[in-house]
């Protein structure tokens, strides 16, 4: 008896699996965004807020699904393998162009179609306010005279802000002692406690402590100054041609029809311009930076190349 039932169940399983999914006109159902990180991080929050405003323009709801794990590899692999029908998007952040250089991943940025870039945040170095270095010049002079002595925290080995610090080393010809932490929070805690000399971060990490006067921005790798801190010069103004930061956008699996991409792009662009989202973004201290599919694709390509070069240098 039991055997019969098991066979019956198995047969049902197989029957159900073999019936294919039906595709239909776009968008007939909700669109989901895969976030390759756990809920609560900056990327997650930004896209949750964007999903909330974009739904009305798309005509169907946009839902966020967290697929953390593997330092983002799990989420991107699933995003890549999803049906290229526009119903599954993935949030693309720097690690999409970093991780494939570090470990064997099933994907690179080339396996995705760019849809839209939403946010770009400049990276920066923070020091404690009571630190002996008053200016970027003093900081770099000391670093030059004492290679490997200044400890610079980052949010994880091979992560975005670690590579920014490495690239900055290369651009200025100094050597830092890089200390990896597990996330931006712990690295900021360590500098507040005075356990490291400097920290490489990207907003909103550490901004509150700069406002409170506990930390100061010693090097800002942006094109232009922060609105919030108009007195802080960029490194570019000080003669070092160096701009780097974190970007966050949306991509679709390769092979998604261009008209679907356009529909998605238009809806998310409207969602981005929605005053509710603009206010949310401002509250979160993130820098909205719109790029269309083509420009976004170019950005990812150049970043991919840059990170590949940087990571080769660490391995040496």
């Amino acid at each position: 008896m039991l055997k019969k039932i098991m066979i019956g169940l198995l047969a049902t399983f197989i029957l159900l699996v073999s019936i294919p999914l039906q595709a239909a006109e776009f968008p007939t159902k909700e669109v989901q965004i895969i976030i390759p990180w756990a809920a609560g991080g900056a990327t997650d929050l930004i896209f949750r807020a964007l999903a909330a405003t974009t739904g009305q323009y798309l005509g169907k709801a946009v839902v966020v699904v967290n697929k953390p794990g593997g330092g983002s590899a799990v989420g991107y692999t699933e995003g890549m393998k999803a049906q290229p029908d526009g119903y599954t998007l993935t949030s693309a952040v720097n690690p999409l162009t970093i991780l494939p250089h570090q470990v064997k991943t099933a994907y690179t940025y080339k396996d995705f179609e760019p849809v839209i870039n939403v946010v770009s945040d400049p990276s920066m170095f923070l020091l404690r306010s009571d630190s002996p270095w008053k200016s970027l010049k003093e900081f770099l002079d000391y670093a030059k005279k004492n290679p490997n002595m200044i400890t610079v925290g980052n949010s994880g080995a091979g992560g975005g802000v670690h590579l920014v610090a490495l690239a900055f080393e290369a651009a200025t010809g100094v050597k830092f002692n890089h200390i990896p932490f597990s996330g931006g929070g712990p690295s900021v805690t360590a500098i507040l406690g005075g356990h490291i000399n400097a920290v490489s971060v990207s907003p909103p990490e550490g901004i509150e402590h700069v406002k409170a006067g506990k930390l100061k921005i010693i090097a800002l790798f942006a094109e232009k100054r922060f609105e919030m801190f108009p007195d802080v010069p960029t490194v570019k103004e000080q003669g070092i041609d160096f701009v780097m930061g974190m970007w966050r956008g949306l991509v679709a699996p390769k092979g998604t029809p261009p008209d679907v991409i356009k529909k998605l792009h238009d809806a998310f662009k409207q969602g981005m311009d929605d005053p509710v989202f603009r206010k949310n973004a401002k509250d979160m201290v993130v820098n909205l930076h719109y790029l269309g599919p083509e420009a976004y694709g170019k950005l990812m390509a150049s970043e991919h190349e840059l990170y590949g070069k940087l990571l080769k240098e660490i391995k040496k």
Partner: peptide, 15 residues
Amino acid sequence: NKLGYPLIAFLLIVA
């Protein structure tokens, strides 16, 4: 993933 949650829940409990 293939059969979906409600169906799996039902079949699992039956079995």
